[in-house]
Computed example of a mutant assay.
Amino acid sequence: MAIDRGQIAVAAPEPGDSGPASSPVTFDAQPDPAMVGAIDLHVHGYPDVGLRWRMRTDDLTLAKLARAYGMAGIVLKSHFWPTMDRALLLNELLDADNFTIYSSITLNQLVGGISPMAVEAAAAHGARVVFLSTWGSANDHAHGGVVRRQVIDPMFPSFSGHLDRSAIRVVDGNGRLSAECRDVMAVSADLGLTVSTGHLSTDESLAVARHAADMGFQKLIFAHPFSPSIRAERAVMGEIADLGVTVEMTQALTVLPRAPITVGDIHATIGELGSQRVVLTSDVFFDWLPPQAEVFRMFLGQLRSLGCTTEELRTMVVDNPARLLSR
């Protein structure tokens, strides 16, 4: 598939503006061959945690840019609210037969936590991905994750106290998966949904992975295991991957001011796990980063410079996402 280099307008920030950028800045889109047909399974739009937390672009501009780079779709994620209504409207506005915005639900306290009812209702509205608890998980609360420290706590000072009482853990003291989480997995399997482990701890993610293997569920993603809130050892990543789980590697973790990992770490992990067991995502969450599609292009280019082939990259951004989102 040939992609023409074209002029792309991306919104630039207005001084004092509390929303996404609004003044267009034009530059040439230069798609990476590996991006043609790619689907980014972890994209934060605007708004996510509130109008005060800016993103680099509005959702429609983000989607148009991703399409111009040759991508086939994105999964729109919010830490707070389901994204089904937004995705439906955005797809109608785009009116494209070669690009799809997929929607999701994140099972934090605001939507009822680990709730099979929430998952079933979300699927009825078009959701394709279920993220298990993120900032609402006991693991993230204990570590004070990046989203909590830099975004949620400053904006919502009451949340920490509420989480002291309601933080979510999906295993009991003996490491057994909770009945609610088993029900969420069952509903997700029945409805053909993809499940991500969110910000659960390593032991919780292992419990979810083992249960998924027992039930023959092949659409589970071990979310950003290098995250400071998770800190999974590579041996654990391998153990989870051996259970049939796809391991997510995100660009965002490599570009933070105090980045916990480098792209070299990700490249080494791909070498150990194999590209067929890895999915690459952007997970852009700060307005000082380039737009999602450009971050994604940079990520692929960096990995290629370290030795990944275009075939390996396409396995991780085209084939594996398509398999995970398939019905």
Rank of each mutant, 00 (worst) to 15 (best):
Q7I: 13
Q7T: 09
I8T: 03
I8F: 08
A9W: 11
V10M: 14
E14W: 12
S18Y: 12
S22W: 03
S22Q: 10
P24G: 03
P24Y: 15
Q30C: 11
P33A: 14
P33R: 12
A34D: 12
M35E: 02
A38V: 08
I39E: 01
I39P: 00
D40R: 07
G45W: 00
D48V: 07
T57V: 13
D58I: 06
D59E: 11
L62F: 08
L65N: 04
G70F: 02
G73D: 02
G73R: 03
L76H: 00
S78M: 04
F80G: 01
W81C: 01
D85F: 04
L88Q: 08
S103N: 07
A118N: 04
V119E: 05
H125Q: 14
L132M: 15
N139P: 01
N139E: 13
D140Y: 04
V146I: 14
R149S: 15
M155S: 03
M155K: 02
F156G: 04
H162L: 06
L163C: 09
L163D: 00
A167H: 13
A167R: 13
R169I: 07
R169W: 05
V171R: 08
D172S: 12
D172Q: 12
N174F: 11
N174D: 13
G175R: 15
L177A: 05
E180T: 05
R182L: 11
A186Q: 14
L191A: 06
L193P: 08
V195D: 07
T197M: 05
H199W: 04
A209M: 11
A213P: 05
D214E: 15
F222K: 13
F222Y: 06
F222S: 11
H224S: 07
S227G: 12
P228Y: 08
P228G: 12
I230F: 07
R231D: 10
R231F: 15
E233H: 14
E239R: 07
G244H: 12
G244R: 09
T246M: 01
E248P: 00
T250M: 06
A259G: 06
V263C: 13
I266S: 00
I270D: 03
I270H: 06
G274L: 10
Q276D: 15
R277A: 13
V278N: 03
V279P: 03
L280G: 04
F285Y: 01
Q292V: 10
L300F: 01
L306S: 10
L306T: 04
C308L: 15
T310K: 09
E312C: 01
R314V: 06
P321Y: 07
R323Y: 06
